[in-house]
Amino acid sequence: MLSLTNEMKREIIMEHYNSPNNKVEDITKISNFENFRKIRMDSDSCIDDITIYLDIENDVIKNAYFSGVACAISTASTDILCDMVKNKSEKDALYIISQYENMLYEKEYDSEVLEELNAFSETHKQAARIKCATLGAFGISKILNGENDE
């Protein structure tokens, strides 16, 4: 992937924050919602409170949605992740998340697979925001690791 300028990163974040592709007001309006796996991610240190829904069939994520309220960083990162894990196997999705976390925690990472998530490569400079940038990622990996809220 081409290296992103800060201006491009900023646009990616604002775009997914202002008009997220995968945010729903009411999940029950989505067909088959009863079969989605879901997890509520509310943070103890801020007011972010989102619920993530994954429609998984035969180890493939068919669809990904989220609802709730969160800051720009949480919202945009969750939305991009939802875009990216769609039509991927659980294993591939977990690989993307692991590389994303490596980037946030300043370890070596595979930037090729991160696509728009590369917009968050500066997060470590505002360390307090790492929690925001990982809220959605932690939620998705929790679901993929077998957790499911009733």
């Binding site: 801020c46 007011i47 972010d48 969160a70 800051c71 720009a72 960083i73 505002q126 307090a128 925001r129």
Partner: peptide, 21 residues
């Protein structure tokens, strides 16, 4: 602007405030 986003912006200017509930 979501309050936490604003608070971290203020932080970048050295201003410490609390965002949240």
């Amino acid at each position: 602007v979501f309050p936490q986003d604003e608070a971290s912006y203020l932080n970048s200017k050295g201003i410490c405030v609390r965002s949240g509930e």
